[in-house]
Design a protein around this nucleic acid. Structure first.
Lengths: 196, 196
DNA sequence: AACCCTATATATAATAA
DNA sequence: TTTATTATATATAGGGT
């Protein structure tokens, strides 16, 4: 795209690399913006450079980054409804919807391509699709984490209640004991624990 | 870039929009790939289309998506070390490092630009930088969530131990009672509470 | 680092297959 | 729906400021 053809490999000259980075980063974000507007889709771009000081550059068509991430979540939510199983069947979740489509796509690709000219671009494409599946799994993990927190809070509450009951129990037992020892007449205990 | 100049606004014809999406998506990912290789940086692209069936497309220069997200985390981790405060001071975290740089950059931009020709591109740039700050805050939230889970697990363990002690306490109390009062019909209580 | 310039490389809109 | 063609629009390498 410039004065001469450029091989796609790391630019060794630091100066040139830096300039190219600045230009191409701008270009990439511009294209991301055009794509999102022209085709009415949400696009997010993240660039992490490591030249000495690691810097983070970002673009998102949605107002906030959390916005696009919430879209992830709702996307994942939909899949969850389809395979609303428990942890034991967790494995089956990975073969739902998009993942199944992905495998079909892979088969199609392999069918129509001779082993000879299995283009690198094809492989890159498949790789990207697989990565898309991975990000979905990651989102799923985030959701599970949130559920985990919720569950743990409930557990904590129940355990605290149980503790309270047990303490009361001990208190009354001791009291009655004392009384019973004095009057030689111990009363039967009733231990009632109601929760859940 | 085609037969005629195209305004950057939503393509109304669904057919054209679909074709443009397919092409531009491929183009964007190709450019993202070139950028990451040429300039030796990590790049992630996320595209969410909503044409009826919401679909998620993704690209990441790192082997796994979690990889690039871990880079986020470590990036955030560094900032955390600098302002390692508790939740109460949470607010102060938002004005650390990158955010401070960001504000300086904003000032610089506003200084050198007349109100007249404050280019849209400048605004877009600033917007993107602000979004970068937002994604960092989001990562921070994820970290806090993970810490929360850890803390809750510890809490749970302590509560369970406490419960065990209390149960033992009750058991021995009852045993002693019975021994000291043979005719009593008092039965040792079994307090078993299983949840989750 | 951020802009200009310009020759060239790439991307892609319209169109057809 | 994708795929191929092709004319045109954009992006950008190298060079200078």
């Amino acid at each position: 795209m410039g004065r001469r053809k450029l091989e796609i490999k790391r630019i060794e000259d630091k100066r040139c690399r830096q300039v190219a980075f600045s230009k191409r980063r701008k270009g990439l974000i511009k294209k991301a913006n055009a794509l999102s507007i022209l085709c009415d889709v949400d696009v997010g771009v993240v660039i992490i450079s490591n030249d000495g000081t690691a810097r983070l550059h970002e673009y998102s068509s949605t107002n906030s980054v959390t916005g696009i991430l919430q879209r992830y979540d709702s996307h994942v939510e939909t899949e969850k409804e389809i395979s609303a199983e428990i942890q034991v069947t967790e494995h089956s979740k990975y073969s739902s919807m998009a993942t199944r489509e992905l495998l079909q796509e892979t088969e199609r690709q392999l069918e129509k391509t001779n082993a000879d000219d299995l283009a690198v671009t094809d492989l890159i494409h498949l790789e990207n699709e697989l990565q898309a599946a991975l990000i979905q799994i990651r989102s799923r993990q985030t959701n599970l984490l949130l559920e985990s927190v919720k569950g743990l809070h409930e557990k904590e509450k129940l355990l605290r209640e149980e503790n309270k009951h047990l303490e009361d129990n001990i208190a009354t037992t001791i009291k009655k004991n004392r009384r019973g020892n004095e009057m030689s007449d111990l009363q039967p205990q009733r231990v009632t624990l109601n929760f859940l």
